[in-house]
Design a protein around this nucleic acid. Structure first.
Length: 273
DNA sequence: GCCCAGGAGTGCA
DNA sequence: TGCACTCATGGG
C-alpha cells in the first residue's frame, strides 16, 4: 500500500529527528519507521512525501495527516519570538505523530536523564530481545514488545539492555499495565490523564507530558526538559526554575498549540536555528 | 577526573 | 510542601 502528501508540510527528516520517536533509521532515499508492530518506508519524491506500508490507515493517522499544519505554523510565527518564528518556518514539515500508547510510556521512562542516541540503542536492544520478528521490504525487524513480554522479562533483562537504574521502573510499570490495562487511561481530559500517569513508577511530570502528547494526542501538553529550560531562559528571558511552573507558563502562552510549539522550539534549538 | 543527557524517587526538614 | 541527594550509563 502506498500514499503521498504535500512535502512542504510533511518532511520526514523533521518529523523523525525532532525527538518524538526513537525507532527509525535511514533506508535508501528515506527512512524506515517502526511503530508498535508495524513498519513503513517514507521518502520525499519531488513535491510529495511518499509512504509505503502494509497498513495505510494506521500510518495516515500515525503521521497526523488529517490535520492542516499550515495554520499551526502561521499561529506559531505570530507570537513574535525569534527562535519560534525561525523554527516554525524552517521546520514547517514537522508533524506530531500519533504513536502507540504503551510504546510511548516505556520509551519515555527510558528517556529520563538520558540522551537520544542512547535511548534509541536501548529501545532497539529491548525490541531485539523481546519483540516479535517481522519482515518489511525484504528486511527483518523486531516489533516493540507487548506489555505481556515486558512484564515477563525480569529486571535483569532490562539491566542487561543498558537501562541502568531505570530497569526496575520498566519491570514495575509493565507489570502494572499488564494487570490493569492501558484502557483505563483513554478518553481522560489532559489534566486527569497526567495525574494518572504520574502514579506509574518512573513517570514524573516531564515523562507524563511526553506520553500524553505523543501517545494520547494531548496537544495541550508542554514537556519541560533541560533543553526547554535553556530555551526558557535564553529565548523567553524567564526567571522561574520550577519545571512545573515553566510548563504552566508555556501552557498559558500557547494553549491548544502548546505541543506543536514545544516541538518547534526543541528541534530548532537543538539544530541551532 | 569532570559534566551532561528529552528526570524521577527518596528521605528529611 | 520544598529541597538536596542519589540513581546507571556512555560520550565529550
Amino acid at each position: 500500500m502506498k500514499f503521498d502528501y504535500d512535502s512542504e508540510y510533511f518532511n520526514p527528516q523533521h518529523v523523525l529527528e525532532c525527538g518524538q520517536t526513537f525507532r527509525f533509521h535511514p533506508f535508501k532515499d528515506g527512512y524506515v519507521v517502526y511503530s508498535g508492530d508495524k513498519a513503513c518506508y517514507v521518502r520525499v519524491e519531488g513535491s510529495k512525501t511518499v509512504v509505503e506500508c502494509d497498513d495505510g490507515d494506521y500510518f495516515y493517522e500515525y503521521f497526523d495527516l488529517n490535520r492542516d499544519y499550515s495554520q499551526i505554523v502561521n499561529r506559531a510565527k505570530s507570537h513574535g519570538v525569534p527562535l519560534l518564528s525561525r523554527s516554525a518556518d524552517v521546520c514547517r514539515g514537522l508533524r506530531l505523530l500519533n504513536q502507540n500508547k504503551e510504546e510511548m510510556l516505556y520509551s519515555f521512562i527510558i528517556s529520563q536523564n538520558n540522551n537520544i542516541p542512547r535511548i534509541k540503542l536501548i529501545i532497539s536492544r529491548i525490541c531485539e530481545g523481546l519483540g516479535e520478528k517481522r519482515e518489511f521490504l525484504g528486511e527483518e525487524y523486531y516489533a516493540f514488545p507487548t506489555t505481556e513480554k515486558l512484564a515477563g522479562a525480569g529486571v535483569d533483562f532490562f539491566t542487561k539492555a543498558g537501562c541502568g537504574y531505570r530497569d526496575n521502573y520498566l519491570a514495575e510499570t509493565s507489570a502494572r499495565i499488564l494487570c490493569e490495562g492501558i484502557a483505563r487511561l483513554e478518553n481522560l481530559p489532559t489534566a486527569e490523564l497526567k495525574k494518572q500517569l504520574l502514579t506509574y513508577k518512573g513517570v514524573g511530570p516531564k515523562v507524563a507530558d511526553c506520553v500524553a502528547l505523543f501517545g494520547f494526542g494531548k496537544r495541550d501538553s508542554f514537556p519541560v526538559d533541560t533543553w526547554i529550560e535553556r530555551i526558557y531562559r535564553e529565548d523567553f528571558n524567564g526567571a522561574l526554575t520550577d519545571r512545573n511552573k515553566i510548563t504552566d507558563y508555556f501552557l498559558g502562552l500557547f494553549g491548544e498549540d502548546s505541543g506543536y510549539i514545544q516541538q518547534y522550539l526543541f528541534y530548532g534549538k537543538r539544530e541551532n536555528l
